[in-house]
Design a protein around this nucleic acid. Structure first.
Lengths: 340, 340
DNA sequence: CTGTTAGCGCCTTCAG
DNA sequence: CTGAAGGCGCTAACAG
C-alpha cells in the first residue's frame, strides 16, 4: 500500500535534467524550454509525483499554514467565522490548522506552542484568554513569546498589555440596532439577559445597553439586566430570576447576550405562559432560523470577519498593528412584534 | 517583531556541545549527562527555543498531522465527530488539519491533494464522494492515488471499488431503535421523511425503515416515506406533500432522516395545526435539545467514532483494512408520546 | 535556458 | 556519554 514516495530527484534522473529544472517547471516561475517542460510534466503525471510540502517549507521558510485557535468549533458562532476564513485562505494558497481549546487554558497554551513549532505563518485567536478583562501573567507572556516569532491577531477580543492587530464586530452598535428596532415597535421596557461580568464582549454589550436606553429615554431598571452565562440553561435561569425579582413589572422585550441564551429564555417563557415578550438574539446562528418562532438576531459580518483576519496575518509582516471594526446588522424575524 | 529564529545550532554553540547532544536532550530518548542536560535545558529556556517541527518532519518522515475532510464543519453532526477526533488526536501527539469541502467536488479534490503534499500521515474522510452510490471514476481514482501514499479512512461512508478501513454508525440499528420506541408507545402508523435516494446513508435508513415496519407488522404505505433532502426546508416540504398525498390518512409519528429535517417538519406541522404527530430526529445534535418540544433523536456514538477514526489512521500502517461498526443509541425527549 | 552547489533545521548512524 | 558527518526533499543563487 505505502509506496516509497517519488522525489524531485527521481523525476530529474529519468528526464536527464537537473533537479533545479524540475523545480522550475513545477514552480513555473522561470523560463524552461517547451520540450523539457513537457517531458518533465509527463513524468510527473506518469509517477503521480507530488512535491513534498514539508521540504519546501523548510527551504522557503514559509509553511503556507495559518493557525486558528478558538474555544469550540461546535459552537456555530465560531464555526461561521472559521469557515469564512478557511474559504478565503484557500484562495490565497493557505491552509488553516484549527485548534479547539475546549475552554481549557492548558489546551490553548498547548496549541499556541504546537502551532508555532509547526511554523504556521500566523495565529488567529478567538475567545478564551483574549476575552478576559483580567488575564493572568502567564497567559499574556505566552502570547508575547509567540508574537515575537509570528503574527498573532485577535477576532473580537483584546487584552491589555498585548498590542496586536485585530478584527472586531462593533457589538455596541449591534445593541443599538436592536434597541432602535424595538423602540420603533413601541417597546419601552427592554431587558438584557445572559453573559458574565468581566468578559469583554459581555461588558461591551451591557454598557451599550445602558447607553442606548439612556439615549432613547427609556425606563432603566437595574433588575432588567441579568448576568447568567452563555448557554441555553442560562437563558432559562435568567427568566426565572426575572420573574422572581421583577414580579409584575416585566419588560416587554428581551435581548439575549447570544442566541443560546435567548432560546433558553424563549423556552422558559413558554413554559411559564409568558407571552408578551419580544425576543432578540445575538450572533444570528442557525439556531435562530430553526426556532419557532424564528428569532430576530444581530448578525456578525462573518464573511468580512474571516477574510480580514486572514488578510491581517498575510500582510501583517509589513504593517504595524491595526484594529479593524466592522458593523453588524440586524436579521429581523418573527420574534419581534409590538407589545400588547 | 519577527526575530530570527534560534536553532538547535545556536543552542549547541553556546553550550559548547554538538547539535546531536542538544537533539538528544530535547528528544530525551538517549543518555545524556545530567550536567550537560541541565545546561542545554537552561539555554533552551533562556532563548525560548522551540524545535522546528517542519525540519523534524523532514528528517523523521513523519509529520504528526492527520487530515480530516468533511463537507461543512458548521453542521453540528460533522463538528461533533471532528472535535472528538481532535481531542483524542491531541493526546496521541497528533494535530488535525480540517478541510471543509463545502460540498464541492473540486475543493474536496484540492484538499485531498493539498493534505497529501503536506505529508499528513493519513486522511479521515466524511461525507461527500464517499456517500454517493454512484461516484464517478475521477473521484475514485483520486482517492486511490492518495491511498497509495497514505492511509485513508472513511467515517460513515463506503465506495464501491475502494477498499479501505472505516468506522460506521450502525444507522440501520438506529432506525430499529426508533421504531421499537414508537411501537412501545402504541404508534402503528409511522412515516419517514427526508434524504435523497442514492445517497448511501439515506438508502440504509430507508431500507431499515421498511424492514423494521415489516418486522413489527406495521402498516406500510408507500406515501409515508418521502424523499426531500437534508435541510430544514426539506422537512417543511415533506410535510406539505404529506398532507397533499395522504390527506386524511396521516401517520401518528414522523422520523426525520436527520435533525434538521425533523425540525422543519415540526415547524410545518405547527403552522398547519397538525398535532397528533410524534417526532424523531437523527444525529442528536444540539438542535434537538434546543427545540420546543425537545426532540427525541438517534445519537451517533460520537466519541467512539472520532477516536476509532484516529486509531485507524495511526495503526493502519500495520493492519489490513478494517471495518468498525458502532451502535447508536436513542436520546428520548419530549417529542415522542402516545398518539391520541 | 540549464546545471552545480549550498544550505533550510533537525535527527541518526557510526565512531570514539 | 558525546561528536562528526550525512541526508531528508526542495529551492535559490551563481555560473555557464
Amino acid at each position: 500500500m505505502k509506496q516509497k514516495p517519488v522525489t524531485i530527484y527521481d523525476i530529474a534522473k529519468e528526464a536527464k535534467v537537473s533537479t533545479a529544472t524540475v523545480s522550475r517547471v513545477i514552480a513555473n516561475n522561470y523560463p524552461v524550454s517547451e520540450k523539457t517542460k513537457k517531458m518533465v510534466l509527463d513524468l510527473i503525471k506518469k509517477y503521480d509525483y507530488q512535491p513534498n510540502a514539508v521540504a519546501r517549507s523548510l527551504t522557503k521558510k514559509e509553511s503556507k499554514m495559518i493557525g486558528f485557535i478558538l474555544p469550540d468549533i461546535t459552537n456555530p458562532f465560531f464555526a461561521q467565522v472559521f469557515i469564512e476564513a478557511e474559504k478565503y485562505a484557500l484562495t490565497k494558497g493557505y491552509t488553516l490548522i484549527l485548534g479547539n481549546s475546549m475552554n481549557s487554558n492548558e489546551i490553548e497554551s498547548k496549541y499556541l506552542r504546537d502551532l508555532s513549532e509547526r511554523q504556521v505563518e500566523g495565529i488567529i485567536f478567538m475567545g478564551g484568554r483574549i476575552n478576559k478583562s483580567q488575564p493572568d501573567h502567564m497567559e499574556i507572556n505566552e502570547l508575547k513569546d509567540v508574537m515575537n516569532k509570528i503574527p498573532v491577531i485577535m477576532v473580537n477580543g483584546k487584552i491589555d498589555g498585548i498590542n496586536c492587530s485585530s478584527v472586531h464586530t462593533n457589538e455596541a452598535k449591534g445593541i443599538d440596532l436592536v434597541i432602535e428596532h424595538l423602540v420603533s415597535h413601541d417597546h419601552k421596557k427592554i431587558g438584557l439577559i445572559g453573559g458574565v461580568k468581566g468578559v469583554t464582549t459581555t461588558d461591551i454589550k451591557v454598557n451599550a445597553y445602558w447607553r442606548s436606553l439612556t439615549k432613547h429615554g427609556l425606563l432603566m431598571k437595574e433588575n432588567w439586566q441579568i448576568y447568567s452565562g452563555y448557554d441555553v440553561d442560562s437563558g432559562r435561569k435568567a427568566v426565572e430570576t426575572f420573574i422572581h425579582v421583577n414580579e409584575s413589572d416585566l419588560p416587554t422585550a428581551l435581548i439575549g447576550i447570544n442566541d443560546l441564551v435567548i432560546i433558553g429564555a424563549l423556552k422558559a417563557c413558554r413554559q411559564n405562559h409568558l407571552h408578551p415578550f419580544s425576543f432578540v438574539g445575538f450572533d444570528n446562528t442557525d439556531l435562530t432560523k430553526n426556532a419557532t418562532p424564528e428569532i430576530t438576531s444581530v448578525s456578525h459580518p462573518y464573511k468580512d470577519l474571516g477574510e480580514k483576519a486572514i488578510d491581517l496575518i498575510i500582510h501583517t509582516k509589513t504593517m504595524k498593528p491595526e484594529e479593524i471594526w466592522l458593523d453588524p446588522y440586524l436579521a429581523i424575524r418573527e420574534s419581534t412584534n409590538r407589545p400588547h
